[in-house]
Simulated assay, not measured.
Amino acid sequence: MVLTQALSYTALAVVAAMVGGVIAITYPPDAQMESNIQHFAAGVVIAAVAAELLPEVHERAPLIVVLGFTIGVVTMLGIHKLSETIEKREFGGHFASASGLLITVCIDMLIDGVLIGVTFLNNPDTGAIIAVALAIEVLFLGVAGVVALPNDLGVARKLAVPAVFGLLLTVGVTGGVLALDGVTGAPIAIILAFGSAALLYLVTEELLVKAGKVPETPVSTTLFFVGFLTIFLLDMLH
């Protein structure tokens, strides 16, 4: 029952990834549009963490929270380092120019999937909000993944990238629910703290850093708060 519910919400993110890929192929966004999307996605993710994950984490033992956050930050720093190493060594053939980004996103999809699964086990209402927030994040990642690919790749091969993102997210959800069903206490608290740190890292070190390469505009700044309010109000009305 929980797995079915979690996968039904995860389907939103799977569809969002494919929509992002189609948008990137049909109407490739310029730098300013990408920055606007990144600001909106950043607001969405921060709101999801603030409204859903942090209240759950706040109730746990401080040592458990510190451990989960530390593991989350170290993991994301490791993924970032891996991405840089892969890009410098130009692995991946046709995908060499984007291999670092693609591998980073693929790992992130697995982590996000596990987080969705765990939040549904812990609190289905929280899981629903997190799944919606991550669907918006995945929409952007679908765009970013396709934009990073070489122009001479065919449409089918380009769309295979967001399809893989969706598949890995689904695998993460399924694995998280099946492996942790019935588990309570410290393991769940560590995963929630880990997920909070991972998502905050995504916002501060990925989305906003990349968005900052384009001069800020009133529209991009406003979209950050629109994204935040969208999830915050959705949480209030849920």
Results as ranks from 00 to 15, higher is better:
residue 90 E to L: 14
residue 143 V to R: 07
residue 114 V to K: 02
residue 19 V to W: 04
residue 53 L to V: 14
residue 86 I to R: 07
residue 107 I to C: 11
residue 234 L to T: 11
residue 178 L to Y: 01
residue 55 P to N: 05
residue 205 E to A: 04
residue 20 G to H: 07
residue 14 V to G: 06
residue 169 L to K: 12
residue 124 P to N: 03
residue 220 S to V: 13
residue 140 F to T: 11
residue 112 D to M: 10
residue 230 T to N: 02
residue 226 V to G: 05
residue 174 T to N: 02
residue 173 V to F: 05
residue 202 L to F: 07
residue 156 A to V: 13
residue 62 P to L: 12
residue 140 F to S: 08
residue 186 A to V: 14
residue 8 S to F: 13
residue 19 V to G: 06
residue 150 P to N: 04
residue 188 I to T: 12
residue 50 A to P: 03
residue 166 G to Q: 09
residue 230 T to R: 04
residue 161 V to M: 10
residue 215 P to W: 09
residue 101 L to P: 07
residue 181 D to P: 00
residue 140 F to D: 02
residue 28 P to S: 06
residue 36 N to K: 13
residue 123 N to L: 04
residue 119 T to C: 04
residue 214 V to Q: 13
residue 228 F to C: 08
residue 237 L to D: 05
residue 222 T to N: 02
residue 204 T to E: 07
residue 146 V to W: 00
residue 138 V to M: 10
residue 28 P to I: 06
residue 203 V to K: 10
residue 23 I to F: 10
residue 10 T to L: 13
residue 235 D to W: 03
residue 141 L to E: 05
residue 6 A to P: 14
residue 141 L to D: 07
residue 169 L to F: 08
residue 138 V to P: 02
residue 213 K to H: 14
residue 122 N to D: 09
residue 211 A to T: 12
residue 141 L to T: 07
residue 21 G to F: 00
residue 49 V to N: 05
residue 236 M to D: 09
residue 230 T to S: 13
residue 113 G to T: 08
residue 111 I to W: 03
residue 140 F to R: 09
residue 46 I to S: 06
residue 179 A to F: 05
residue 119 T to E: 03
residue 223 L to E: 07
residue 160 A to I: 09
residue 27 Y to D: 12
residue 235 D to G: 02
residue 60 R to D: 06
residue 103 I to L: 15
residue 199 L to Q: 06
residue 185 G to F: 00
residue 49 V to I: 14
residue 222 T to M: 14
residue 123 N to W: 00
residue 177 V to F: 00
residue 90 E to V: 08
residue 210 K to W: 06
residue 137 E to D: 11
residue 205 E to L: 03
residue 219 V to K: 15
residue 236 M to E: 12
residue 142 G to A: 04
residue 128 A to M: 14
residue 151 N to L: 10
residue 231 I to T: 09
residue 7 L to P: 09
residue 42 A to E: 04
residue 183 V to H: 01
residue 139 L to M: 10
residue 231 I to L: 14
residue 27 Y to G: 04
residue 86 I to E: 06
residue 18 M to I: 15
residue 79 I to K: 01
residue 169 L to S: 09
residue 118 V to N: 01
residue 159 L to Y: 01
residue 161 V to Q: 02
residue 42 A to F: 09
residue 49 V to D: 03
residue 235 D to H: 14
residue 76 M to L: 12
residue 202 L to R: 11
residue 43 G to W: 03
residue 109 M to Q: 15
residue 2 V to T: 15
residue 141 L to C: 04
residue 81 K to F: 12
residue 18 M to H: 11
residue 31 A to K: 15
residue 232 F to Q: 15
residue 71 I to P: 00
residue 24 A to Y: 02
residue 95 F to C: 00
residue 174 T to Y: 00
residue 20 G to F: 08
residue 208 L to P: 07
residue 135 A to G: 11
residue 160 A to E: 06
residue 32 Q to M: 13
residue 82 L to S: 08
residue 52 E to D: 13
residue 94 H to T: 07
residue 79 I to D: 00
residue 213 K to D: 13
residue 41 A to I: 14
residue 177 V to A: 04
residue 150 P to G: 01
residue 222 T to A: 15
residue 29 P to S: 07
residue 34 E to S: 13
residue 144 A to Q: 12
residue 19 V to Y: 03
residue 71 I to E: 00
residue 87 E to C: 02
residue 8 S to K: 15
residue 23 I to K: 12
residue 124 P to T: 09
